[in-house]
Amino acid sequence: MTSTTQNPNLAALSAAGVSVWLDDLSRDRLTSGNLKELTETRSVVGVTTNPTIFGNALQHGHAYDDQLGELVARGADVEAVIRTATTDDVRNACDVLRSAWDASDGIDGRVSIEVDPRLAHDTDKTILQAIELWKIVDRPNLFIKIPATKAGLPAITAVLAEGISVNVTLIFSVERHREVMDAYLAGLEAAKSGGHDLSKLHSVASFFVSRVDTEIDDRLEKIGSEAALALRGKAGVANARLAYAAYEEVFGGERYAALAADGARVQRPLWASTGVKNPDYPDTLYVTELVGPHTVNTLPEKTIEAVADHGEIRGDTISGTGPAAQQIFDQLSAVGIDVPDVFEVLETEGVAKFEASWNELLEATQTRLDAASK
């Protein structure tokens, strides 16, 4: 990558310590050279995927037609077809991003693939599939995505203990984020006991932002008081800032220091769900207000282009903001927002949405297989 071709706004974001990752993947992006172009012009150094993204990729266009035909001819069932198509895409994306992985000593250049969301509440099956996906893709710059459900937490520890890097997804509350960081440190400790090189193990904690505002804004509008309405659009950023304060506390502590002496890396906060859903808010809100060292922002291409066009990167906008962010949540509670219920609803809905997307993907792929076999 040459600095002269990078968009200056996104280059400034990277210089401030934020790794720019694309929240999308499709075979068209790979075969057209679009993903490579984004690394060269938009500072993109990572890719995240989820069942919804893969569903959109597989259901639209004809990029997968030849492979689907070949797999049908070999008698593959629908789950094998999806596994093959998605792992092929992720493996090829890993290869596109390998230079970023090499240049960053393994910190960036990462591509994530998620375990089957139907396993979100099954620890043992999540572990087995994580290991299987790691072996199938067979690239060192892969992340296995595991949801931060109660069943996901021990799976995170167990998968890290196997020497596999993990992207923990669907984190909504700071309380759960702390549990995720604890699971990460436990995984590092187990990996160390198992003889793994801790410097090769990496993780990010994917903290969802815009969905928090969507849920809380809806509740504030139902309350309707002047004090409640004045808090709209503030919870998502405040929640992420509290998560960053918790990250600084945990990774500034003695437990991590003991592991860092053996080469361990921090588990970076990753801002997910950063496309702005409310048109009344600036379309770069969840980028410009969450700039801080050792963070990742995974962005839909629309948001990447918004930042490239008019994003104002003002340096670090997150360090030291914990107390002010806590005041926002104190005010939310004061006007009647049941904050723990918000996070419980968001996690339940998040798992359900990914599971629904996966089921839609299975049905749509089966329809295409049936048509191809006639």
Rank of each mutant, 00 (worst) to 15 (best):
D102R: 07
Q67P: 05
A85S: 11
P140K: 05
N92W: 09
T52S: 14
V81I: 13
L58V: 14
N92Q: 15
H60Y: 07
L97H: 06
V45C: 08
D66Y: 11
K36L: 15
D95S: 07
I53W: 04
R139G: 04
E114G: 08
I53K: 09
D138A: 14
T126L: 01
A130K: 07
N50Q: 09
V111P: 00
G69L: 06
K36E: 06
I127Q: 03
H60P: 00
L119A: 03
V81L: 09
E40C: 02
L133T: 05
V137I: 12
K125T: 09
A93W: 02
Q59C: 11
E70P: 11
S99G: 05
L38G: 04
A120S: 14
R98L: 08
Q59A: 15
R118G: 10
T52W: 05
I53F: 10
A93C: 14
G109C: 01
G61P: 09
A120H: 08
W101I: 06
I127L: 07
E132I: 10
L68R: 12
V72Y: 02
D108E: 07
V81N: 06
A100N: 11
D122T: 11
D105C: 12
R118V: 08
C94R: 04
D124F: 09
L71C: 10
T86M: 01
L58C: 07
R74G: 04
L38K: 11
N92F: 11
T41A: 13
A130F: 15
E37L: 15
I53C: 00
N50T: 08
V45S: 07
S104R: 11
A85G: 03
S104C: 02
N92R: 13
D124S: 14
S104K: 07
I136P: 06
P117E: 01
R110P: 10
G55P: 09
V90G: 00
V44A: 04
G106M: 02
P140F: 00
A76I: 08
T126S: 13
T41P: 00
D102T: 12
N92M: 09
P117H: 07
D116R: 13
T52V: 14
S43D: 00
A80K: 05
A120C: 15
D138M: 03
L38C: 08
V72H: 10
D122A: 05
N50V: 06
P140R: 11
V137Q: 00
V81D: 01
C94M: 13
A80M: 02
T86E: 04
L35F: 07
L97P: 01
V81T: 06
V78N: 01
L133N: 08
V72P: 02
T49C: 08
S104Y: 06
V78P: 03
G69K: 13
I131A: 15
L119W: 03
R83L: 15
H60F: 12
I107L: 09
R91H: 15
T49N: 03
E37F: 13
I131W: 05
K135P: 04
